[in-house]
């Protein structure tokens, strides 16, 4: 009975929706400006609402960069949202052209971009959280139980300290804990900021992930030198093989040193970018097919599903980056074990 009634209502409503659909799009003409997910609600937003036309060329640049123009491809819009930008758009309320910095240290352009803003925002959030937790922790003795935010942060710090740092690095892990904890929270907050409306994913930019991976690389190399000395480090490069194989092994080992941070860079960047591209693509299916039904049945549910998945991936990738950093540091500093291996291999050779 109920199924029949539902199907009847659907039979009535579906053609109505379809006709509404076509009317709505007809009213807009051939304008494809609605390709923006938020612009769908506010189709007639004109460049008049541009908030800060900072420089003379700004409106035109902003309009072009922002993608309010006509005849735009969905791919372009997606890329526009994924990529870094000198204009921070708050559609449909307007946009802010981020300030250019004239000073060029080392000849590089250090102008503020969208992702720089997000990095700063993440740093600020992390500083506020960290300092408040630090203050609340300082004020209590070991017999009190932690409360609220301090409890959450403390659990994560303890997890990274024992399960990530201690189990992967082993003895002497203590001095790497601050870096690992900071990198974890930094990536986590960047990932999460990319998931809130008007946010951008700084960790979806390869420059950011590269910088973080370079930190891991530098720390790994310094730790390896400190733990093994120059001789041990060079021995490590030969991987304990016979000298006649060194011509093959040494380049491979050197390349191996660089593939680790490269893998970290690409993994985080690709994961964060891919998730966002999927969400945008799912939403654009509705605009490409110009149908509310597709929007309700496909785009929104699937986008929500991917969004929840992204929420999980935000934590997962922050953890993976931290975990692998700890693993690489552990591999670089685990010298006793390797020395034994080398000695055994030498004994076998002679």
């Amino acid at each position: 009975m109920r199924v029949q009634a539902t199907s009847r209502i659907l039979a009535l409503v579906v053609p109505l929706l379809l006709s509404l659909n076509s009317h709505a799009f007809a009213a807009l003409g051939q304008n494809e400006a609605t390709v923006h997910e938020s612009a769908a609600a506010a189709a007639p937003v004109a460049p008049a609402t541009v908030a800060e036309p900072a420089s003379g060329a700004a409106p035109a640049v902003a309009e072009a960069a922002h993608g309010e123009g006509q005849g735009e491809k969905p791919g372009d819009v997606i890329m526009h949202h994924i990529l870094d930008n000198k204009v921070y758009a708050f559609e449909p309320f307007g946009e802010i052209t981020l300030p250019e910095i004239a000073v060029r240290p080392f000849g590089i352009d250090i102008s503020v971009t969208k992702h720089v803003v997000m990095v700063w925002l993440a740093s600020a959030v992390l500083l506020v959280v960290g300092l408040s937790v630090g203050a609340s922790v300082k004020g209590m003795n070991s017999k009190q139980s932690p409360k609220g935010l301090a409890n959450v942060i403390e659990a994560l710090v303890d997890f990274i300290r024992t399960d990530v740092a201690k189990s992967n690095i082993g003895p002497g892990y203590e001095k790497f804990v601050p870096f690992l904890v900071t990198v974890f929270f930094f990536i986590l907050i960047c990932n999460l900021l990319g998931l809130i409306p008007y946010g951008a994913t700084a960790t979806g930019n390869i420059n950011v992930t590269l910088t973080l991976a370079v930190f891991t690389f530098v720390i790994t190399q310094v730790a390896a030198f400190k733990a093994q000395g120059v001789k041990g480090y060079l021995q490590h490069l030969t991987a304990g093989t016979h000298w006649s194989l060194w011509i093959i092994m040494v380049p491979i080992e050197i390349i191996g040193q660089f593939t680790k941070p490269f893998a970290l860079t690409i993994r985080l960047f690709a994961n964060m970018t891919a998730g966002h591209i999927i969400i945008y693509s799912l939403i654009f299916i509705a605009f490409i097919l110009k149908s509310y039904i597709v929007a309700m049945a496909v785009s929104v549910p699937f986008a929500i599903f991917i969004y929840l998945l992204e929420l999980f991936v935000a934590f997962l990738q922050a953890f993976v980056f931290t975990m692998l950093s700890a693993l690489f540091i552990g591999l670089a500093t685990a010298h006793e074990h390797h020395d034994e291996d080398h000695a055994l291999e030498h004994a076998a050779h002679h």
Partner: peptide, 24 residues
Amino acid sequence: NPGLIFWTAISFLIVLLILKKFAW
């Protein structure tokens, strides 16, 4: 984007140093 690399490195270092002392 060298500018972004620059700012990321600076921000991360500052956050790392401050939090190392006052939080972690």
